[in-house]
């Protein structure tokens, strides 16, 4: 058996214990000792799990795999418990059983026989786990697909299609006070006429040309090709902006983690 992994594991374990002791603040003599010891343990565990995940940056390793598998197991159970208590106990039980409602201490709203339907569909969905009865879970899947389609159809049509087109038709001359005052102020304070006119024009043309770019039934030549080209430029700016925001978001998450490691755990920053 190779010695290196054993030594590394022993060192990590020793560091864990050391951190636990230090974070417990000498709790052995304190009256709230148990609370301090457990707090020390949990903060050390959080820090070591953070480092275990970060160790993947060097290369895949057993500590990362441990953290990854732990995360999967805990998360799945967490969502199950949350769903059970908030929705099954909160919404289904009060409509089906007075006895169970009293047991769970949720207000009984009266027997609603049609609420047996989701219960049945729920169990049919679980049949997916059975090797032979998997086909019957399609009924539940069909319900889920039907609900999603039925909910999405009117809402996407109204909010993402009609409202978006309606919002694109804006006045192209905003706060117009004449040519002279227009050229006197190139302010981007977002309240002047220049920015108003420029933004509305870019939005109108950008949406129009962006849609043209996605229209593949006609060859992109001539005036249509020019519009399509402008459309792709607008889309490129859009993707550039999205990239910038994505970088910003990812860095924020890293800052958040390092704040925990350097602040809450190591105490280097307040």
């Amino acid at each position: 058996m190779r010695k290196a992994p054993i030594i590394i594991t022993a060192v990590v374990a020793a560091l864990f214990v050391l951190s636990w002791l230090l974070k417990s603040n000498g709790a052995v003599v304190d009256e709230n000792s148990m609370s301090a010891i457990s707090q020390g343990f949990w903060i050390t565990l959080s820090a070591f799990l953070t480092l275990a995940v970060m160790s993947f940056l060097y290369q895949d390793n057993p500590f990362y795999k441990f953290a990854e598998h732990l995360y999967v197991g805990v998360s799945a159970a967490y969502w199950m418990c949350m769903g059970f208590w908030t929705t099954l106990v909160g919404n289904l039980v009060p409509r089906l059983s007075e006895g169970l409602s009293n047991w769970f201490e949720v207000p009984y709203v009266g027997f609603k026989p049609h609420f047996i339907i989701p219960l049945v569909f729920g169990f049919l969905l679980l049949m997916r786990l059975s090797p032979k009865g998997g086909w019957i879970s399609r009924w539940s899947l069909a319900f889920i697909v039907g609900t999603t389609a039925g909910l999405n159809l009117p809402r996407f049509l109204s909010s993402d299609f009609i409202s978006q087109i309606s919002a694109t038709f804006m006045p192209l001359l905003v706060n117009w006070q004449g040519i002279g005052s227009f050229f006197s102020d190139f302010s981007l304070s977002a309240s002047g006429q220049f920015i108003g006119i420029l933004s509305n024009l870019v939005v109108f043309l950008g949406v129009f040309c962006g849609i043209i770019y996605f229209f593949f039934s006609k060859e992109h030549k001539g005036a249509f090709g020019v519009a399509s080209r402008f459309g792709i430029w607008i889309l490129m700016i859009t993707f550039g902006a999205s990239f910038g925001y994505t970088v910003m978001g990812r860095i924020s998450l890293l800052v958040g983690r390092l704040t925990f490691i350097m602040g809450d755990w190591l105490g280097l920053i307040s």
């Binding site: 919002a167 925001y245 978001g249 924020s252």
Partner: peptide, 12 residues
């Protein structure tokens, strides 16, 4: 909004 989705919500 989280930064990743912020540009997607601007049309609203």
């Amino acid at each position: 909004l989280a930064a990743v989705v912020a540009p997607l919500i601007y049309p609203y």
